[in-house]
Design a binder for these strands. Structure first.
Lengths: 326, 326
DNA sequence: TTGAAAGCGCTAACAA
DNA sequence: TTGTTAGCGCTTTCAA
């Protein structure tokens, strides 16, 4: 690989002059400029970001720590993030914590050693953030329990839960089963809360029915609904706390001969592309993944530029994707 | 962040001595060692890989260029890769080419500027590799058309196509519809070839039926099968070139009242986790994603260590995941 | 407008 | 066994 020095020699100038051209921080004589540009092309110069990073303490790369790379929705947001990061001239180093707090902790060091300029924490791990709190770099969280130490971008889970429930009510549904997820997760608690709130507002406090499922999988939801089906199943809608649950419920119901959505409406939450795989395309409360992914990167870039940001938590509105199950 | 120098001062030794301890390349007196270890702990020293990378020309990070991050199967392999890369003490920078040759080209420069030690090219883009050919770094491809310039790790698509077809034949199926994908893709051509081969070997040359679908999506396959259903559908099995197609076919058939697998068997290809979402869990020819992800990283590490590798193309055996659709 | 030179944090050859 | 030092490729201050 050729270096600044190579370019400088060919152009017959000093390295600093070349550096000025590259950074655009000083003006050079047009004639010199031309010679330098030619030389850059000639040797196909590619700057060494390790070297400039060492000097400026800016690596032009940001770290992404994912709590769970198996989550389809997270990956969809990751794509948006990579696209945005790229537009800023940055790259992203991706680490998977694989739902393990130990790995999560190790990942910080891995990234710090590489001088990342900023860090995105993604996914709903809870109180595993202690070591991150005294990392001396900008950090933004997405889809993670709000922690006062960090700026957090997330969709409004309460509003989403409420919105989804109201959507079902507007379709004439009254007996809605909510399939919730482990309430240790902030988003799960809030989505359930939104469901309850909407039911109460509609004067249906007596019709609040929910089950908490221990594992984020289709199978888990399917098994649970099949068990309900064996006893008695007296609902006209199922609202899954995550798309996985809605899909599982739909599979169970269709298998047992129910008509979806005629007899039972199914509503998911997340709006992941998974919803397009199922036998009936899943209607869902969607997180605005484009907006979220873009926003989290933009906020991080502002922090990197040392802008002061007032917000501690940025909430974005979910919306309904109408497909075939409601 | 504290530096080697800080540690050295606290321990009362020179930076080189600390460096020796860290790298383990020289032995130091136990007493000195202790002092240094204490100092490292005291300041919570974290090495600066930019600096060492600049010196040694080794960044301890590898680049991954994904042709298409939307592909669920690719992401599953990516997870395995990240895990393996981590075990080697490396990190990965992930770039998404988003199916665009221009982006693919830009991604190389992005990575080269960061001094990656090696590169993994993932996904089935075809002749967009010209610029990569004279990159002076180790490159390994996975799931990509074999290019004599690079070491390639992939599963044996012909064998997989054949294996899947023979599996269906062993279940008594004779009229098998193969849903193929764009034959510009190496893997798609080979999977179809495997299907044809098995049919011929079984003396069923007259029963070779296939359709080529233009787009890797569930919807595309579903629409096509529904159209066939309107004319006449005279098959007792559908073999999808990718899981997406099999799922789409299954959805169409079940919607039209067919019993799966009693009337029609459905077989996918890839063995992605998507197969666990569908109303009947998908039986599929699986690519050994654990083995593939691990192998591609291990080969790359060997290249980074300057080992000579004879293989130009490493083929791994697919296998059948028996679930509910055959 | 351009150049000389110091220094970012580390490694490793060489010296002691 | 330990220390001194040059230098990796770049940025940037200061001087010309």
């Amino acid at each position: 690989m050729s270096t600044l020095k190579d370019v400088a020699e060919i152009a017959g100038v000093s390295v600093s002059t070349v550096s000025y051209v590259l950074s655009g921080k000083k003006t050079v004589r047009p004639e010199t400029l031309k010679r330098i540009q030619d030389a850059i092309k000639q040797v196909d110069y590619c700057p060494n970001l390790l070297a400039s990073g060492l000097k400026t303490n800016l690596s032009k790369t940001i770290g992404v720590v994912m709590w769970d790379m198996q989550n389809n929705y997270s990956i969809e947001v990751l794509r948006v993030m990579e696209d945005t990061i790229c537009k800023y001239g940055y790259c992203m180093i991706v680490c998977d914590s694989d739902q393990s707090p130990e790995k999560e902790k190790k990942n910080l060091r891995r990234l710090l050693a590489r001088n990342i300029d900023g860090l995105i924490l993604m996914g709903s791990g809870n109180n595993v953030l202690s070591s991150y709190r005294n990392a001396q770099i900008p950090i933004v969280c997405i889809d993670r329990a709000a922690d006062e130490a960090f700026l957090t971008v997330q969709s409004d889970s309460v509003a989403g839960g409420q919105m989804g429930t109201e959507y079902l009510l507007s379709k004439g549904r009254r007996k809605i089963l909510f399939l919730g997820y482990d309430l240790d997760f902030d988003f799960a608690r809030k989505r359930l809360l939104g469901y309850k709130k909407a039911m109460e507002l509609a004067g249906l406090s007596d019709e609040i029915h929910y089950e908490i499922l221990p594992e984020r999988s289709v199978k888990c939801a399917m098994d649970r609904v099949e068990k309900l089906l064996q006893d008695k199943f007296d609902y006209d809608a199922v609202f899954g706390c995550v798309d996985y649950f809605a899909i599982g419920a739909m599979n169970a119901l269709i298998k047992h001969g129910y008509q979806v959505p005629e007899q039972v409406s199914i509503l998911g939450f997340d709006g992941s592309d998974m919803g397009k795989l199922s036998i009936k395309e899943l209607t869902a409360v969607a997180q605005p993944k484009q907006a979220l992914g873009k926003a989290v990167v933009e906020y991080l870039m502002r922090l990197i530029r040392k802008e002061k940001i007032q917000e501690k938590c940025v909430l974005m509105e979910p919306y309904i994707i109408e497909r075939e199950t409601c």
